[in-house]
Write a protein that binds this DNA or RNA. Structure first.
Lengths: 174, 174
DNA sequence: TTGGAATGTCAACAAGGCTGACATAAAATG
DNA sequence: CATTTTATGTCAGCCTTGTTGACATTCCAA
């Protein structure tokens, strides 16, 4: 339960970790940076969404439907990691409001193929533009080398199941 | 509303941005990496918390009280960015359960100074250890240079008010 | 053809955000 | 000293977004 509490001077030896010795303090700073940055990361879309009585869950659905048009509910469930009932509520709202179209699958009629309507694409673009602007700003400020490192650490931080689902999506979309 | 939609080949010129030209696709990948990584980042503490009928809100409170022992409710509100009613609900539970102590301020008796009890410290350590282990693993996998870049991008992604509050916290804690 | 698995929908509940209204006590100000 | 402002806590009620349970439909395999 506790390999923590290690201060400088209590290193376990001179293996490869001596090149990257991490104090609890440094790790805590990383944790806090992650917390605050995620807040900044979602702040702009949240503002837009709150005007429209939508939330982050709607944003996530719009994002991944835009990313993989025609995807199924089940597919989305795997990516988002929520219960299907939770997702369904969000999708129902989006369908009722004319942002998402849900068509019965041609091959397997149990499935529903999800696509954005023009209005859905419009909102998705608005949200995405805001978030990309923030991301672009951060990238520019930090520089290209930092961006490389940023992505590397993030990829190592995802859990592996999720990362596989993510890569699968990315590949199927390109 | 839309400076997006730019593909390679539609650059605006040859200014400094040509060194760091960012396609929408690259930015989207960054956005998704952030989303998935944050999920990985919170997964381990979430598991522990759900056994105890606590949530992320309790974790955040415990974390920052551990970080700045004796801090006030108002202070915490600024850091967490939630309403006092929301925070109060969480703090009340933690005080009732004997994880946090709330003492009337000595200098200003309106204030409450918040500290962790031994039991609170124990849970905080358990949560923190899990999260640090994940962070340490990601850092080791990505390497020291990547960690530098990671922090740089995250800091640029926070909004400036938040970043100032963050630095203030960090300095007062060291 | 029939029973199980997969997929999606509807209903109800809980956690944890939010706002508004209000009470109290202490501090600051005129 | 009287008044106002500040810090905190509490009650009520709302919304979003998680959860589980029950159920309908469709497909597939025994």
């Amino acid at each position: 339960m506790s390999d923590g509490r290690n201060g400088p001077g209590f290193g376990t030896g001179f293996g490869s970790e001596s090149l990257l010795f991490l104090t609890d303090e440094q790790l805590r700073q990383g944790i806090e940076a992650m917390f605050f940055a995620y807040r900044g990361f979602t702040a702009d879309p949240d503002r837009i969404l709150s005007e429209l009585a939508y939330g982050r869950a709607h944003h996530r659905a719009l994002h991944f439907i835009a990313r993989a048009p025609g995807t199924t509910v089940n597919n989305l469930l795997g990516i988002l990691g929520v219960s299907k009932q939770s997702l369904n509520r969000v999708l129902r709202a989006l369908v009722e409001d004319g942002l998402v179209e849900s068509r019965v699958g041609t091959l397997d009629k149990r499935e529903r193929n999800l696509t954005l309507t023009p209005r859905g694409e419009e909102l998705e673009a608005r949200l995405s533009d805001a978030q990309r602007a923030r991301m672009r700003g951060a990238y520019k400020e930090a520089g290209p080398d930092a961006v490389q490192g940023f992505k590397k650490v993030l990829e190592a931080m995802m859990d592996q199941d999720m990362y596989r689902a993510y890569k699968k999506l990315r590949d199927s979309a390109s």
